[in-house]
């Protein structure tokens, strides 16, 4: 199916290359003027009133990531294309693309230690109703260089803009400085656990309209659905966005064990004991036979 994309892109490239040639010939000047004329990156400020608007489309390399016993993290390749790209080459930097992969929002508790009688003890807690379990953002260059803070914030782009909603009972208890400290702690701890991350040059263009980004998921990413969002920027303006889904799910024996542990917990406990008894008895029998 990659071929289909390639063909599309090639036809786009063909139009783009042919159009200026025709214009230069002066044969169909009037028509060419109405048509979408690709412009070099040097003069992007001229309005493209007649050109079709750019649209971004994207997909992910794997829709379903299976967590089996050998699972030690996965890699998601996000790739996409810009329809009606006006970019002269992959290196021109005409467009900026940001890719976000986000896990399902889940409740989170943050604890803060304090010193009590010489010991470090958890003394304060703060509850969030919803914090994404995982958040990775990759972009063609640092986000702040191509979009202002308000735009980034509106679209939940960047680690500072990750949606974190505080639980009402926790929010009323703490001051705004403390709230900021708790939010910063979430970002810091999630970053050190590799669950929040940014890659400023993580998206690369591989053609006039094709781009891709590879995002590594550590093994600790909680199982569940993930959303991949792709944003297309030009000169600080958001031109288009696109969304795709990835599902992270346990498969095979891992799935079976997990379901067993949580759906029939007492039976699981009995199975654990039987396994342990069998292991102990088999081992001692095996070693006794060898010993004598």
């Amino acid at each position: 199916m990659m071929r289909a994309v390639a063909l599309c892109v090639m036809s786009l490239v063909a139009i783009a290359v042919v159009a200026p040639v025709m214009a230069a010939d002066g044969a169909v000047v009037a028509q060419a003027a109405k048509k979408a004329k690709p412009r070099p990156a040097a003069v992007p400020q001229q309005p493209m009133s007649t050109s079709a608007p750019e649209r971004v489309e994207a997909d992910v390399s794997t829709r379903t990531i299976a967590i089996t016993s050998g699972y030690s993290g996965a890699e998601i390749l996000v790739f996409g294309a810009i329809e009606n790209s006006r970019q002269p080459s992959a290196e021109s930097g005409f467009y900026d693309v940001a890719v976000v992969i986000e896990g399902a929002p889940e409740p989170l508790m943050v604890r803060k230690k304090g010193r009590v009688a010489g010991l470090w003890v958890n003394t304060a807690t703060f509850n969030f109703n919803a914090v994404p379990s995982y958040y990775a953002v990759a972009s063609t260059r640092p986000l702040e260089e191509f979009a202002d803070a308000a735009l980034l914030d509106d679209n939940g782009l960047g680690l500072e803009a990750v949606r974190m909603s505080a639980a009402a009972d926790s929010a009323v208890r703490v001051s705004s400085e403390d709230l900021i400290a708790f939010k910063d702690a979430v970002r810091r701890l999630k970053q050190s656990a590799d669950l929040f991350k940014r890659a400023d040059y993580g998206v690369i263009f591989t053609g006039r309209s094709l781009f891709r980004a590879t995002i590594a998921l550590p093994a600790t990413v909680p199982v569940g659905p993930l959303t991949a969002r792709v944003f297309l920027f030009h000169e600080g303006k958001l031109l288009s966005k696109y969304q795709a889904r990835v599902v992270l799910e346990r498969e095979g024996i891992e799935r079976w064990l997990y379901a067993f542990a949580f759906e029939r917990p007492f039976l699981y406990g009995i199975a654990a004991v039987l396994l342990a008894l069998a292991t102990g008895l088999i081992a001692s029998a095996a070693f006794r036979r060898r010993g004598t």
């Binding site: 199916m1 990659m2 994309v5 599309c8 390749l77």
Partner: peptide, 27 residues
């Protein structure tokens, strides 16, 4: 343009570029 519903099937994914530092797979 295909509508974002294409998959790679069993084709191996292209090699990763110099993007995110990814952990080497530990068998």
């Amino acid at each position: 343009m295909p509508s974002g519903s294409f998959t790679f099937g069993d084709r191996p994914a292209p090699p990763a570029g110099p993007l995110f530092a990814h952990e080497p797979s530990r068998p």
